[in-house]
Design a protein around this nucleic acid. Structure first.
Lengths: 210, 210
DNA sequence: CGCGAATCTTGACGAGTGTCAAGAGTTTTC
DNA sequence: GAAAACTCTTGACACTCGTCAAGATTCGCG
């Protein structure tokens, strides 16, 4: 057990230093992971792109898997509230759907490596049992995120969503993945397509007006 | 160049033997790939689960990547016509959607390892340039496959599809992936959910009746 | 049969991997 | 300011990987 409890002296930084370093390490590890993917990112390469040496990983994490799971959890944690602003500020159904589409496109442009890492990890979890718990949790939080958007859209439209949250998430995840792939392939129009698809799709998710 | 042209004597088996062996090799390689995934399936492991030794791979393929791309292409080739029967035999919109849903569930049950391999490979293509061409082609053929189903459904309903093929493919691919993940996670109900989702979703893809 | 080409096996190579122990360096504590 | 605890580096370990060359084996044709 490398973990330290630090029972006494909760003054300043007893062992939160540990957590801070873990975050620092995670942030630089995410750069490498986003560049190379789960399988090809070695601990040495990760360490090279950080301010530490390759041995330090085993001081803060038990093994490579724990590091990677920590990283993706850390990233998705901030990622899950990306559309909270959209939900809060939207004034009409059309406004919401426009902002939502813009935000989707924006995140592909700005964080494509992170998104492909997520899809990589989720695929790996189909083979690697030990990844499934984390992936399932993250997937659930993403589904909730989409549900908030769709529900807000329905409420602004004065009706209710005609589809269940898992279906909505599955659909948006599917076309998002497609747009990401297209974008990485250099296919121009991939992002514009995504925006239009979202605009076209959203109204179909609503039930009949009350 | 390991490739052999065999210009003359197109009698019996001049160099189609080569192609046949490649297929045989691909078939047993697919078993291992479906079990371990792209990154963890070594050539030695692949060869162990076949009737050959590990060196033979380089007699029929230039490198590991060529083998794997050949394998997935080989598999998806047969896979793309999975719903042709459904399209041909369906007698009514409801009949088609029921058959389609059943077939989706069936293929998850029977070929889950192959499907997760496909998603694995598609994710890897986001990192590995050399995979993109094959992935793009396969993705396109899958989109066409879905388009045939949706168009047939629309035609049986006496109307036209309200969404473009890429959107339809993205949506179904998304919920299919979700169901596959749930199934591999041992979540009971994952497959039943998929069936119901398809039944509920299909009618929403249609435009107003003519 | 016998010879040459096609096919396959074997064994080795160098590079790269995760892991970990030993110790150097740094900070904290008394 | 010495001792203890924490933090980090270094270097080695055992192992796996893709690749390939050299040779054994099998096959097909004259």
């Amino acid at each position: 057990m490398t973990q330290v409890a630090a029972p006494k002296s909760p003054r300043r930084t007893p062992a939160d230093k540990h957590d801070e370093r873990r975050k620092t390490l995670a942030e630089s590890a995410l750069r490498t992971l986003g560049e190379l993917g789960y399988a090809r990112a070695s601990l040495r390469e990760i360490a090279n792109n950080s301010e530490f040496s390759h041995g330090v990983v085993h001081y803060y994490f038990n093994d490579k898997l724990e590091l990677i799971v920590y990283c993706v959890r850390y990233y998705k944690q901030t990622c899950v509230h990306r559309y909270d602003g959209v939900v809060a500020e939207a004034t009409s159904p059309d406004d919401l759907v426009a902002r939502f589409g813009d935000k989707l496109v924006e995140t592909i442009i700005e964080e494509a490596p992170m998104h492909r890492l997520w899809y990589d990890l989720r695929s790996q979890s189909m083979f690697e049992e030990s990844l499934r718990e984390a992936v399932t949790q993250i997937d659930q939080s993403l589904e909730d995120m989409i549900a908030r958007v769709v529900n807000r859209y329905a409420s602004l439209s004065g009706t209710e969503a005609a589809i269940a949250p898992p279906v909505a998430y599955g659909m948006f995840d599917g076309i998002f993945q497609q747009a990401l792939l297209g974008h990485l392939n250099g296919r121009e129009g991939a992002l514009e397509d995504l925006r239009n698809q979202v605009v076209g799709l959203m109204p179909m998710l609503l039930g009949p007006k009350a």
